[in-house]
Design a protein around this nucleic acid. Structure first.
Lengths: 344, 344
DNA sequence: CAAAATAATGCAAACGTTTGAATAGCCCTA
DNA sequence: TAGGGCTATTCAAACGTTTGCATTATTTTG
């Protein structure tokens, strides 16, 4: 039914030589006469020969494939990371197997297992929101299996982590709001078990303190789902409740910031005149919104690139875990737009 | 260095039986005594045995892996499709290898080639904007290689195509604008060699004709890049130029629609009062924009699901190409929002 | 011209499985 | 007690490569 791919054997048969000669001819071994090489390559070309990567994998116990495990493909940030991963991997001759966990712990474990069966050369992981236990990672790390974590990284020894400077990004964002004259700044936080969220909150807190503003815990609100509807309601309710209204929002991500914008609009507040808003991630939408949304740019593509480069270097033994200063922290950049520009 | 995975051989050695017995015991062959089965499974468990998928692939000439080739991961629509693909594939025990072409013809070809080497069981392809020649597809199809095309599909015999009803979506969108009293409707088109764009334009044209509006070719403008900046300029220039201003825009995608919105805003037109705008794709941003953007919903996830189901059925010989009524057309849905609601 | 040196090729094992065919026990029967 | 019929197990080939070692063919050397 399905037509067979030509193999090295077919070439050998056709030329009446041994398969080892063919193999060597194709790889330009010096010991093979240039005449044979020429003939072999001709036939290979003619039969449209492609080496069977599976056989190669088996022989070499290397698959030239890396496994990527992320919570959700449909997420601007992650898709930019994937793009970076794919770029580096393919340029260095590696394939990328992709699975998403949909934020489920069980799927994370089972995905890792099937990939292990597939003789993956290494993993790139950003773990799920449900993941609190890291044993499935440590078991692999103990066996010297190459893993690079990115964005959502675990707090375990010997893990190579590539992250964005969430703390500094949040610090800069908050400082920017303060410098624009905003004083009572809400923080819409994420789940604290995610380090990234924790760090963003810490940046917010430190920025306030550094500018002599006392931290009001009631202004720190958790938005666990991270969707606009949720944060809209939270902000709306808070404003109804408080007598002295806040004058700014620093949101843990752009979607949450958008919800805050919606709430403000419905409450009749002007952005940025009455309320300043800053998001996090710098999605495409930021520049499209009205007013455009100030946000902290996370270099997703670069994270993918950097993390993959390290992983491949580990796989190819060009470096070792103890030579890597983990975490690798990539710079964020505050993209100032209209939602927070009160002074000119 | 790296610790070895246990193999069937290790189990055999430990129990002093042959590897074939182990293999059969693990698969519950009836001829194996339940005693041996029990012992084998125990040892397998203890050694944390996982079958080597690579060896299996080689033996069976099947890799249980499908290759996905898309232009760009960082694209809301494609990422939803991927999500659907991943979902079905993983539930049916398949891996997904992902590559992007970045809209390059050469990368499309080379990606296909490396995947072929990896003994991929089948392909899911949405081709690049540069692709005009389909020989690299037909060569595979002639060899009975399972391929399912989605979204950007080629016009070749025997291809299985899964698409969205672009024509109907565009027709509905245009009809909606007409029903809201808009008369002079611009169409911001995409590159015509992409069937989807052609179909959208056709839907636009037919809707106008069906409502007795003569088509004004000067109102059909191509936006090849499909980014807001481009369409903004195009719309802005057109409005400057024309004496009798258009009163609506039907854009070939949401980003292009956003550009049109920006242009209108700068020109001082009110949306939807002066100008109605409809986009295509129904990205997340649509409901967030101010005014919210009417758009044609494309079921990306469902496309991924449907396309993958067909591909796997083809791979597993549960169906054959001539049993499939290609193209499979999935319904779109017009999501009416404020950008086009002039009547109440 | 025999032996040594060199060049070119071939053999066979290995990677981890599956699987058709062969074999080893064992009990039963005539 | 030879053979038949089971059951449980083993052998060995195959999937497509790579690669250390052996072999053959060719040339050089004394």
């Amino acid at each position: 039914m399905r037509i067979e791919q030509a193999t090295i054997k077919d070439i050998a048969q056709e030329l009446n030589i041994s398969i080892s000669t063919v193999s060597r001819a194709l790889k330009d071994y010096p010991r093979i006469s240039s005449n044979t090489k020429k003939k072999v390559k001709e036939v290979a070309e003619r039969l449209n020969y492609r080496p069977n990567a599976v056989a190669l994998s088996l022989r070499k116990s290397r698959s030239f494939t890396i496994g990527v495990i992320i919570p959700d493909v449909v997420h601007f940030f992650f898709s930019t990371v994937i793009s970076g991963i794919e770029e580096v991997a393919s340029s260095r001759g590696y394939n990328v197997i992709l699975t998403q966990t949909n934020e489920r712990f069980e799927r994370e474990k089972s995905n890792i297992n099937t990939m292990l069966g597939n003789q993956i050369d290494g993993f790139m992981i950003s773990f799920s929101k449900e993941t609190k236990d890291f044993e499935h990672f440590t078991k692999l790390l103990d066996r010297n299996y190459p893993i690079v974590f990115f964005d959502r990284v675990p707090d375990i020894e010997n893990a190579v982590n590539v992250v964005v400077d969430d703390y500094q990004g949040a610090y800069d964002a908050t400082t920017h709001l303060i410098s624009q004259g905003y004083k009572k700044i809400i923080h819409l936080a994420g789940p604290k078990n995610l380090k990234i969220c924790f760090e963003r909150e810490r940046g917010y807190r430190d920025a306030l303190s550094a500018h002599g503003i006392t931290i009001d815990e009631s202004l720190i609100l958790e938005c666990p789902l991270g969707v606009p509807e949720e944060s809209k309601k939270i902000v709306y309710d808070l404003f109804q409740e408080l007598e002295i209204k806040p004058d700014a929002v620093f949101a843990n991500n752009d979607m949450v910031a958008v919800g805050a914008m919606m709430a403000c609009r419905e409450l009749g507040f002007q952005i940025p005149k009455d309320i300043g808003i800053v998001g996090f991630s710098n999605w495409q939408i930021c520049s499209i919104l009205e007013p455009s949304l100030t946000s902290v740019y996370q270099p997703g593509f670069d994270i993918g690139v950097k993390a993959t480069e390290i992983l491949l270097d580990l796989i190819e033994n060009k470096t070792s875990i103890d030579q890597i200063a983990s975490p690798i922290v990539l710079k964020t950049e505050l993209m100032i737009r209209n939602s927070s520009k009160r002074l000119f």
